[in-house]
Simulated scan of single mutants.
Amino acid sequence: MSTHVQKPGWFTVNVFNRAVAWMTRRGLSVWGSRVLAVRGRKSGQWRTTPVNLLTVEGRHYLVAARGHVQWTHNMRAAGGGELRLGKQVDTFTAAEVTDDDKVALLRAYLKRWKAEVGVFFKGVGPDSSDEELRRIAPDHPVFRVVIEN
């Protein structure tokens, strides 16, 4: 498994993520944003981070643009969590998508959010070949989300 991680910079942590999370907690989705809540794999405490909820053919996915970050490790351990938008809380289960099944999902994700996250994909974009998308697939975990309520 890849260990690829791109840690966020000061601006992302202290300004951008906080602003998106603040708006999302108040019910204002920014380009499909949600606040992801997942129990920590060691502490058991809820951990939150803003994410983009991708919908393809009626199914929901979470893509880790920055790679194998803390929420992805926690998601593997917990098998699900909550997606929050304002007062709406959707409990979900999650299953990791195999690298071979990521190509179309990464393409859809980049088509929608390349301006925001494209820098994390090593020059690969929505118009890149399947081979290029397949090459970066191991670096970007993708989870299929099944909302329970």
Rank of each mutant, 00 (worst) to 15 (best):
V56Q: 05
S43R: 11
K111A: 12
V146Q: 12
L110D: 01
M75E: 04
R41S: 07
V35N: 06
R25K: 13
A108F: 10
L106C: 04
H73F: 15
V15E: 06
A137R: 01
R144M: 07
H60V: 02
R135L: 06
G81M: 02
T98D: 10
A21R: 05
S128N: 15
P141C: 04
L133K: 01
T91C: 08
A77S: 10
H73P: 00
V35F: 04
A64Q: 04
H140T: 08
R66I: 03
V119T: 12
I147S: 06
R26F: 14
V5C: 03
E82T: 12
W71L: 01
T3W: 10
L36G: 00
T49L: 10
V142D: 03
Y109F: 10
N17L: 11
W71H: 06
A94T: 08
V30I: 13
F143N: 00
L28F: 15
L83I: 11
A108E: 12
V15S: 06
P50V: 04
L54N: 07
A21Y: 02
V89N: 08
Q70T: 14
S128K: 11
Q45V: 15
V69Y: 03
R39F: 10
S43H: 10
G125N: 15
D101G: 09
A104G: 07
L28E: 05
V30H: 05
F16R: 13
N17A: 14
G86A: 05
L53K: 11
S29Q: 08
G67I: 03
T3E: 14
S128G: 15
G44D: 05
H4I: 04
K7D: 14
D139P: 01
V63W: 03
R112T: 11
A19H: 12
G40V: 13
G9S: 12
D99Q: 10
S2C: 10
R47E: 08
V51W: 02
G86R: 02
K114D: 13
I136H: 00
V15I: 13
W46C: 02
S128H: 14
A108W: 11
P50Q: 06
R41Y: 11
E131Y: 07
L85G: 07
K42L: 13
G86T: 10
D139C: 04
G125P: 04
H73S: 13
N149S: 11
P141Y: 05
E57A: 12
A64Y: 05
D90Q: 13
V51A: 01
H68I: 03
F16L: 12
G67N: 08
E116F: 07
V38P: 00
W71M: 02
V117R: 02
G58V: 09
G40T: 11
M23V: 08
R135F: 06
A19I: 11
L62M: 02
G9E: 09
V145S: 01
R112A: 13
T55V: 15
D127T: 14
T48A: 05
A104K: 15
G118M: 05
V5A: 05
L106N: 03
K114C: 07
H140C: 01
G58F: 07
T49G: 04
L85S: 06
R39G: 03
A21E: 07
K102H: 03
W113L: 05
G27H: 06
L28V: 14
Y109L: 00
V103Y: 07
